[in-house]
Simulated assay, not measured.
Amino acid sequence: MLITLTPEQEAWIKARVATGVFASVEEAARQLLDDRIAELAGDEHDDMAWAKPLVDEGLAALERGDFITLEEHGTRNLARLAARLK
């Protein structure tokens, strides 16, 4: 397989090889691709479990009546903007 890098990508990799971050251009390319593939694979399997506590917190606030309407939000923002423009 032949992959053509942009001049900027090539310079970036060569600079990291020169400073010892990577042993070779090939190692850099493999490592960077492996890292990105792992990142994408993680995204594909993300079940959004991390969001559940945030959703639960929001629902609890809603049940407590701890919220403002969209109209109230707009009114507050307009008042803040007016105060800043004075």
Rank of each mutant, 00 (worst) to 15 (best):
M1W: 04
M1K: 10
I3Q: 11
T6V: 09
P7W: 05
E10N: 12
E10G: 00
A11W: 03
K14M: 11
K14C: 02
A15R: 00
A15G: 09
R16G: 01
G20W: 05
G20P: 04
F22D: 04
F22T: 02
A23Q: 07
A23S: 15
V25C: 00
V25I: 02
E27K: 01
A28K: 01
A29F: 12
R30N: 13
Q31F: 05
L33V: 15
R36D: 13
R36A: 08
A38Y: 05
E39W: 01
E39H: 03
E39D: 10
E44I: 06
H45G: 07
D46A: 10
D46N: 14
D47A: 08
D47C: 09
A49F: 04
W50H: 01
A51K: 13
A51L: 06
A51D: 10
K52Q: 12
D56G: 02
E57S: 15
E57W: 03
A61M: 13
L62V: 00
L62A: 09
E63S: 02
E63I: 02
E63D: 15
R64Q: 13
R64A: 13
G65K: 13
F67Q: 08
I68T: 15
I68F: 09
T69V: 09
L70A: 10
E71S: 05
E72L: 08
R76M: 07
R76K: 06
N77A: 14
N77L: 09
N77S: 14
N77Y: 06
L78W: 11
A79L: 13
A79N: 09
R80F: 03
R80V: 07
R80H: 12
L81M: 11
A82M: 01
A82I: 13
A82D: 10
A83K: 12
K86M: 03
K86A: 08
